[in-house]
Write a protein that binds this DNA or RNA. Structure first.
Lengths: 138, 138
DNA sequence: CTAAAACCTGACATCCACGTCAGGGGCAAG
DNA sequence: CTTGCCCCTGACGTGGATGTCAGGTTTTAG
């Protein structure tokens, strides 16, 4: 398939696909006229790349990991494995942080709801505003 | 405390703190000479802001949410609540996506480990490289 | 008092994953 | 051949959070 179809299938823009190639994350075969052609495998690769981007990995980090996926060998296997494990840890920490943040947001929301309830029932004492940013601890 | 100490305490750069203020996310009192002074409450605020930034919220989004935290009132309460709930959903979706990505990464790692094991035991068949990017489905 | 350290404003620089535009070709249908 | 559509390269624009520098002022330590 050509680049337009790959873009349509994966949801990445044409510009992005060329950018991925430029960064060494994606390959293509060229037609006689120079147009890029891809197989279904490349579509899967793009989906994988997009996941990694969404996980906050940068192009260069992804490029470091790809050798394993691409052409595993004795030389790079250990190094790639190490990097992947490290990225996995980073990702886990990030997820934990986001869960934490969501909890904080929940506390803010709960406080806001309680405040609204107080407004309705008229139980509001002066200066009794919810102090959301001091919600359940860090 | 002055801005340098606040920066040291929160891990944000001095530049960032001034930027937060510029965006209306942080306030300071000024000394006679014009220097910013902060209380412990501001340090907590900064920690809260950094959480929100880490969760992918932009300055403007945070600015939209802060009125609730800051000065809840009848007019903005409903709107802020709505926005917060929306951001909470966005955050949840993002977390789910990251968990998904971590699973994919785990699959890649497992494949790489298996490949390494094959190398050691010599059970490797030709062209038996792990195809990590085709790991357990999307 | 004086020097050093910290702070001020304002402005320009940077990074990164793209968007977008210009100017030009490939390629199938009619 | 022409029309239309998709594609090419190259280059500059963007946005958001932050780095960095210049030139000057305030605060603190000695």
């Amino acid at each position: 398939m050509r680049i337009g179809e790959l873009a349509a299938r994966t949801g990445a823009s044409v510009r992005s696909l060329r950018y991925y190639e430029e960064q060494g994350l994606l390959r293509s075969t060229r037609s006689a006229g120079g147009q890029r052609h891809y197989t279904d495998a490349e579509a899967e690769r793009v989906a994988f790349l997009r996941r990694l981007y969404a996980a906050g990995l940068s192009s260069s980090t992804i490029a470091e990991l790809l050798p394993c996926v691409e052409a595993p060998s004795e030389e790079n296997a250990e190094l790639s494995l190490l990097r992947m494990v490290r990225e996995r840890e980073r990702l886990s920490a990030h997820i934990a942080d986001l869960l934490h943040t969501r909890d904080a947001l929940d506390a803010v929301i709960a406080a806001a709801r309680a405040y609204r309830e107080d407004l309705r029932t008229g139980t509001l004492a002066p200066d009794d505003a919810p102090r959301c940013e001091r919600a359940p601890a860090s």
